[in-house]
Design a protein around this nucleic acid. Structure first.
Length: 783
DNA sequence: ATCCTGATTTTTTTT
DNA sequence: AAATCAGGAT
């Protein structure tokens, strides 16, 4: 080792790492599992390991595949590795699963019957196509939404089940129906030379399974593979890795022996932070890693360098309520720090005012806006916060929500490019053909698409010969001819070959740069003109968005490495950007985002708003038995905070425009009161009360009641009046939204007042609403 | 074909 | 509250 010319650098690379970190960084060949608790220096280990592998010549940059969860994380990591190495990491595959697969597929697509210009459909496109297939099968759209059906398809794909296999093992009429949609859906995607997000993984796995030479080539070219956030990988991703490194679970169908390979796979993750099961992530991937690779070296990172001990204690206490998992106990040396601030506000507006007020105070005290993040469960909750921030003139950024690339005008512009690149792309064609309005309505478009399918040519070819299309009116023929004239000009400009192969064999001419092409598209199709004609503020905003997109195009042109395939690469890049990738951390902005988007990030001050049962944990997660995952999400949220943590809850909140009354999140009660500054002790009667209600056991009811009374009595203050009222049998006057406790049902909240002394209470235990006679029921005011 | 209007639905979370 | 959708009028 001392002979290594980089010995000094090596020293530097390992300096400042603790023992387990160093072990992970310097691990040589063979499987490696890094169990990295929150804030334990995971990214540091990953970047140092990447640099170490290159430095010690265990791998060239180009022989490493490093998977991150977002493109943003990838580019940050690349920057850090380059700083460590002191040179470029060009050639290193440092990207998301989806980007890596798209890249492989673009090189190999012909083997699977696609062209390298295949279009990537996002979720909205996929749902639209699903709906079309549902209509074709004749499914009642009232009973099943395209989103729900598409989720089923997505789940199947993530399990690597194709339509045929899925159909064979369908065990219910429902599954038969799904299978039918699935068959159509797959057929259409292939016809359209398009893939959805799940296909990127699925098709890559197909490719590697079907073509041994391809598999061998990629397996040999990636001598080391590293995967971040391994707890959130799904089965398709697991199989992809298995095909590249060898080893892993029992051989798949048709495989005689276990796959051979170098098995140089290092995975990093934390099962306590697995929060993507709704996306078919399977936490067993990380839990079973040691079974998959019995000789794996396992490194646990438990020292936290991020949060105060108070925050960590809260996180540990919360996650302890989950069953199972790999045990680890985070600790830190950063001192006790401040208590966790817990606040209850009247409604979401008051909550927002409180949060923004605290932000103002912190800024006055010298904090920077970049040090503050506000986290919420659902995107819709950002609105009130934004309103308040705007009013108080605090600069902020929202991550997620309506993404830039999901705006209609952006999707339209991109669809024009997609169709130019991929003449089979029906979804883009139908999106673009009548936007701006050209007099080509649904009926005409339907005829064009149907004709292309019958004749077996691309939509482009079908549309290029309007008079061949049966049933098309003269007006439509004329409109289409004019439209296709424009598109032909643009096609030449783009340097794309004629779809009918007229000049195949010729060298594909070099197209103009993407930014210029985009500009030409927007001008020549009349898209911008139509927007200008609207003369509304809205349209003006859209034009500005489009200008921004053109700017993105120009930037792409300026940095494009090879002049080849630029349009495809640009489209692929756009299809796979996540909104998390647009986060900026140097512009003096307060950051607003969902808890999911906060994964992997840290902030000195964190607010988690909406800590109410039904909001967080989310009611739909509760219905589907996803409580533990919600808790992990809460754990993720808590552990984002370095020094200050605020948890807020609104007694009343508008959901779908209607007022709802929510109980405090059950997670709040899981934080030891001593760690917080809340004045009133949380009343934990829920489980006991529910047990009592369920079994009808009088003793359990007594117990729940006794605990509830003594606890609320213990909170001091004006408890005595309440107690006497309760002791007298019942309290008779209640207000809307009041927190109450019932002897058998436990905690609840008054959601309605009815005549004749009847109140409606929703209970925390089972979420059910019950009508009670205020005078007679054993119910009383809480707190 | 297009536009308008009232009804219905939407909100988990995302590559 | 906002967005999308279906159905009907123009």
């Amino acid at each position: 080792m001392s002979a290594n010319p980089h010995a000094e650098h090596l020293q530097e690379l390992l300096e400042g790492l603790n023992e387990p970190q160093r072990e992970a960084v310097t691990h040589g060949e063979g499987p490696l599992l890094i169990l990295a608790g929150a804030g334990s220096g995971k990214t540091r280990v990953l970047t140092h390991r990447l640099a170490y592998l290159v430095y010690t010549d265990q791998a060239q940059a180009g022989e490493i595949l490093a998977i991150t969860f977002t493109n943003k994380a990838a580019s940050e990591m690349r920057g850090r590795v380059e700083r460590l190495l002191g040179r470029s990491t060009r050639g290193m595959w440092l990207m998301t699963f989806h980007s890596a697969c798209a890249r492989i597929l673009r090189a190999e697509a012909e083997r699977l019957g696609y062209t390298r210009q295949f279009t990537i459909y996002d979720q909205a496109d996929a749902r639209r196509l699903t709906k079309r297939c549902m209509d074709a099968v004749g499914i009642d759209p009232k009973r099943y939404t395209p989103a729900a059906i598409n989720n089923q398809l997505s789940a199947a794909k993530n399990q690597l089940l194709d339509a045929e296999t899925y159909g064979q093992q369908a065990g219910s009429p429902f599954e038969e129906m799904i299978a039918e949609v699935y068959r159509l859906y797959e057929r259409d995607l292939l016809r359209m030379n398009a893939m959805d997000f799940d296909d990127l993984l699925f098709r890559t796995v197909n490719l590697l399974e079907l073509f041994e030479d391809v598999r061998e080539r990629y397996a040999a070219s990636f001598r080391h593979i590293l995967v971040d956030e391994y707890q959130d990988t799904n089965h398709a991703q697991y199989r992809f890795l298995q095909l590249l490194v060898g080893g892993g679970k029992a051989p798949a169908r048709g495989e005689r022996v276990q796959l051979a390979g170098h098995r140089n796979l290092a995975v990093v993750g934390d099962d306590a932070q697995s929060i993507y099961s709704f996306r078919n992530a399977d936490v067993r991937n990380i839990l079973d890693f040691q079974q998959d690779f019995p000789d794996a070296r396992v490194v646990k990172l438990e020292q936290n360098y991020r949060s105060t001990e108070t925050i960590l204690s809260a996180a540990n206490a919360v996650i302890a309520n989950n069953r199972g998992g790999i045990s680890k106990r985070l600790w830190s040396e950063l001192g006790t720090g401040e208590q966790i601030h817990v606040r209850e506000l009247d409604d979401e507006h008051a909550e927002a005012r409180f949060v923004v007020g605290e932000i103002e105070r912190l800024i006055d005290e010298g904090a920077s806006r970049t040090e503050i993040a506000v986290l919420y469960r659902t995107n819709a909750m950002s609105r009130v916060l934004e309103d308040t921030l705007v009013r108080r003139e605090i600069a902020y950024q929202v991550i997620g929500g309506t993404k830039f690339y999901e705006r209609a005008e952006i999707k339209d512009a991109v669809a024009y490019l997609s169709w130019l690149a991929n003449p089979f792309d029906v979804v883009s064609f139908t999106r673009v053909a009548n936007s701006p309005r050209r007099g080509l309505g649904q009926t005409s478009l339907g005829r064009i698409v149907a004709h292309s399918a019958t004749v077996g040519v691309s939509v482009w070819e079908a549309a290029a010969a309007p008079d061949q299309i049966p049933g098309l009116g003269t007006a439509a023929v004329k409109a289409l001819r004019r439209f296709m004239g424009t598109m032909e000009e643009l096609r030449v400009l783009a340097g794309m070959p004629a779809p009918d192969g007229r000049d195949s064999g010729e060298e594909t001419s070099q197209g103009v740069p993407v930014g210029d092409l985009l500009q030409a598209v927007l001008a020549q199709t009349g898209y911008v003109e139509a927007l200008e004609a609207e003369r509304t503020i809205e349209a003006q905003g859209r034009i500005e968005n489009l200008e921004q997109l053109v700017e993105v195009g120009h930037e792409f042109d300026a940095t494009a490495e090879a002049a080849q395939d630029t349009l495809d690469v640009f489209l692929q890049q756009i299809a796979l950007v996540a909104d998390a990738d647009t986060r900026s951390d140097d512009e003096g902005l307060v950051t607003l985002m969902t808890l999911h988007n906060a994964k992997g990030l840290e902030y000195p001050t964190v607010f988690i708003v909406g800590c109410e049962d039904g909001v967080f944990p989310h009611s739909r997660a509760l219905d589907e038995g996803g409580l533990e995952e919600e808790r992990r999400l809460f754990y993720v949220g808590i552990t984002r905070a370095m020094r200050l943590l605020y948890l807020t809850r609104a007694r009343r909140r508008a959901v779908f425009g209607a007022q709802t009354y929510g109980l405090p999140s059950r997670f709040l009660a899981e934080i030891p009161a001593a760690l917080t500054d809340r004045e009133d002790e949380p009343v934990i009667v829920r489980s006991a009360a529910l047990a009592g209600a369920g079994t009808g056991s009088a003793a359990a009811r007594e117990l729940a009641y006794a605990r509830a009374t003594s606890w609320s009595g213990g909170s001091g203050g004006g408890a005595s009046a309440d107690r006497s009222a309760r002791g007298g049998g019942a309290q008779t006057s209640f207000r809307l939204g009041e927190d109450v406790v019932h002897a058998a049902f436990g905690e609840g909240v008054v959601t309605a007042l009815e005549p004749h002394g009847v109140i409606v209470v929703r209970f925390a235990g089972d979420g059910a609403e019950r009508k009670l006679m205020a005078e007679l029921a054993p119910v009383s005011r809480r707190s």
